[in-house]
Computed example of a mutant assay.
Amino acid sequence: MPTMTSAWARERFARARVARLATVAAGGRPHLVPVVFAVSGDTVVTAVDHKPKRSARLTRLDNIRAHPAVCLLVDAYAEDWDLLWWARADGTARVLPPADASATSAGYVRLLAGKYPAQYGERPPSGPVVEVTVGRWSGWRAA
C-alpha cells in the first residue's frame, strides 16, 4: 500500500473541507472535534465561529492551552476502496486572540473566509483563532 509524500499529504489536506482535531484532555484522554480550516505553508488555522456551541468555554481551547500537541486528520471514503486516502498534520497549537484584537488572527480569518465564502463571507469567525505549526505531514492512499 503506497504512502503519500509529505508534499502530497499537505496538498490533499489543504483541499479537504473538514478535518478532525485531536487534542489531549485532562488525564491524558483524547478529545476529538470536527473543524473547518485553512492551510498556509506548514500552518493550519481554525477559528471559533458563530455556529452554536454548548458553552462559550471550549474544551479544545483549554486542552491546547494545557497541552499544545495536536493532530488533525482528513480523509476520503468511497465504496471503491482503491480510492481511499487519509492525510494527517501533527503539530503544536496555540490559541490566538480574535481577529479584532490581533493582526495575525485577522489574516488567518481572511484565509478562512476565502476558503469558505458561503459560510464566512458575510459573517467571519469572531472568536479565538487556533494556529497549528505542523511538524509532520503524513498520509496513506489505497492505490
Rank of each mutant, 00 (worst) to 15 (best):
V24L: 10
L112I: 02
E79S: 09
W85G: 04
V35Y: 00
W140S: 09
A93H: 06
V130Y: 03
R123M: 10
V45N: 04
A25F: 00
R88Q: 14
H31A: 13
M4T: 13
G41I: 08
A99E: 07
V39H: 05
L61F: 01
S102E: 07
V74P: 08
R94Q: 11
H67F: 14
T133V: 15
V24R: 06
N63M: 08
R136Q: 14
A19L: 01
H31N: 11
D100A: 15
F13K: 02
P2S: 05
R65D: 15
F37E: 03
L84W: 06
G139D: 12
G91W: 03
W8I: 11
G27W: 08
W81S: 12
D82N: 11
R141T: 15
V129C: 11
L96W: 04
S102W: 07
L73R: 05
W8G: 07
E79C: 03
A66C: 14
R54I: 13
Y77I: 15
T104L: 13
P52Q: 09
A99Y: 06
Y116F: 12
V24Q: 06
W85S: 04
R15K: 11
V129M: 07
P97A: 14
M4Y: 02
R94K: 12
W137A: 04
P97G: 12
E131F: 11
A38R: 00
R57V: 15
A76Y: 14
G114H: 02
P97E: 08
T133E: 13
V95D: 01
T104V: 15
C71M: 12
A56P: 13
A101V: 13
S40C: 09
Q119F: 07
W8V: 10
L72D: 01
Y120D: 06
C71P: 11
S105Y: 06
W85T: 04
P30I: 01
D100F: 11
G139Y: 10
K51M: 12
A118K: 08
H50V: 14
R65F: 13
V36G: 09
G91P: 03
T59H: 08
L112D: 00
F37Q: 04
